[in-house]
């Protein structure tokens, strides 16, 4: 029984079949990588998990609950968090405020009319947010405005924001894209540490094979909208179908 079960998902944009009969099963507590060449449908698939897109046919079940037709914020409240390809953070707010928001969202739900409370007096939320910043090693940047940070820091902040919600499933869309090698390695360490400590299930889309093979416990290879192989990392490397997908095959 997987935490996320995707069955026969199809999605077309006009004449383009972006996803064809995609089946995917993400086991609880694992890091599952989804790889594939550009245009294979990886991001489309992820968008179907978070409510940004609705598949034409098929089912997406999370913890036994269908995610189809549910709004993004409801999916998130159910326990699915997402790190985007380009960091989506609250750029005008301080780093600390960025982390406060998911902490409030976790505690208070999708809407609470608490216009007369004071952020200053929410001690438990403040402590949680601070701890989160310590965990991702950003406490020294606490009062910086988020937009003034480097791309790598923005990503780490976004990860901290997602983790602050204690998600059951964390979706990461190319978490190391555009990062320097050192930052990439830091991210790998951070993710595996989180996985060790909190047992959060993760689905990672990634191009960087170094990242994929350092983290993933299972890998699905997507090509032209279908999952061509789903297997353990050691079996993926030399798999003829995978090589064909990446190198263009016999065409």
């Amino acid at each position: 029984m997987g935490i996320l079960e995707v069955q026969n998902v199809n999605k077309s944009f006009g004449g383009l079949k972006a996803l064809q009969n995609v089946n995917l099963n993400i086991e609880e507590g694992t890091i599952h990588a989804i790889i594939g060449p550009n245009g294979a449908g990886k991001s489309t698939l992820l968008n179907c998990f978070v409510g940004k897109l609705v598949p034409d046919t098929g089912t997406v079940m999370f913890n036994g609950q269908s995610l189809l037709g549910i709004k993004p914020h409801e999916i998130n409240q159910a326990g699915v968090s997402r790190v985007f390809q380009t960091p989506e953070i609250f750029t005008d707010l301080s780093v600390f405020e960025n982390v406060l928001i998911p902490c409030f969202a976790k505690r208070d739900g999708s809407f609470k009319m608490n216009a007369l409370n004071r952020v200053r007096n929410e001690v438990d939320i403040q402590e949680k947010a601070e701890q989160m910043l310590i965990d991702v090693n950003m406490i020294d940047k606490r009062d910086m405005i988020a937009s003034s940070m480097s791309r790598g820091d923005k990503r780490r902040l976004e990860m901290a924001m997602c983790l602050a919600q204690d998600p059951k499933l964390l979706l990461l869309d190319e978490p190391t894209a555009g990062m320097a090698r050192a930052d990439t390695n830091n991210t790998i360490d951070l993710l595996s540490e989180i996985q060790d400590r909190r047992h959060i299930t993760m689905a990672v889309i990634e191009h960087d094979m170094h990242v994929v093979f350092s983290l993933a416990q299972k890998i699905s290879v997507l090509a032209q909208g279908t999952v061509i192989v789903e297997d353990l990392p050691e079996n993926i490397k030399g798999h003829p179908k995978v090589q064909e997908a990446y190198l263009g095959g016999a065409h």
Binding site: K71, N76, Q77, S81, E88, I101, A115
Partner: peptide
């Protein structure tokens, strides 16, 4: 200075992130 006000400021900055943070 309230959490509500913080959410309003978050809306101005990035509604996408707000929705994917479980807030309506």
């Amino acid at each position: 200075r309230s959490p509500f006000g913080l959410m309003l400021r978050a809306i101005k900055t990035n509604q996408t992130r707000l929705n994917y943070t479980g807030l309506n």
